[in-house]
Amino acid sequence: MLEIKNLQASVEGAEILRGIDLTVNPGEIHAIMGPNGSGKSTLAQVLAGHEAYDVTGGTATFRGEDLLDMEAEARAHAGLFLAFQYPVEIAGVANSYFLKAALNSTRKARGEKEIDAVEFLKLVKEKAKLVNIDEKMINRSVNAGFSGGEKKRNEIFQMAVLEPKLAILDETDSGLDIDALQVVANGVNKLKAEDPERSFIVVTHYQRLLNYIVPDYVHVLSGGRIVKSGGKELALELEDKGYSWIEETVGA
């Protein structure tokens, strides 16, 4: 699905990622944890193709294609989805209009038939039900005036409609109460069940989310490198001992 080798990236001259190696196979859930400033969000943004970040070395292959050579929209068309840590507000644009345009742009790029308004509405209802989100959200402007929790739910809703092969969740749990957290986790689990080949990279600061989304692998990012990898028990150990334990252990 995704193979990252020695990935290095900087923003405005400052080196953030210093050689990341990560392989995600179809159907796997990987959690990426780490202290603030370790490069977690940068990794998510670089993989999605944000132009503010310069890739200075390494490779990333997504479903057999050179990911780093693709425009942001081409990555989306290939099946990569990023749930944003801070979803952007776009005033005056209805969620439904935006999402239909996004879906059709992807379908067109894949050589599939564009979906019409009736089919789209049907899909929206289906997916809203699947991830347990109020379908009325579709009529509002994209994230405009949404609470923090609503924005995150909207990310999950978009993810459900766009049906990605690989979804990256960038601190989707931050600032959520327990109910919203469960909606998000439930959404991920339903989408995983819908397509067992679907992969997830869950970027999070806290172990809490991993009670609901059970990862196959946990990686700890520190100083722009993955300093420790393990199974889901690693997250519990981190919760117990704190990030300083890792940093002391690896001398980072």
Partner: peptide, 19 residues
């Protein structure tokens, strides 16, 4: 804003036009 829309699959021109 542009990056957000492009990440969802919209071409640059369509993204700007939409905003």
């Amino acid at each position: 804003q542009i990056f957000y829309l492009r990440q969802r699959g919209l071409e640059m021109e369509d993204a700007v036009s939409m905003i």
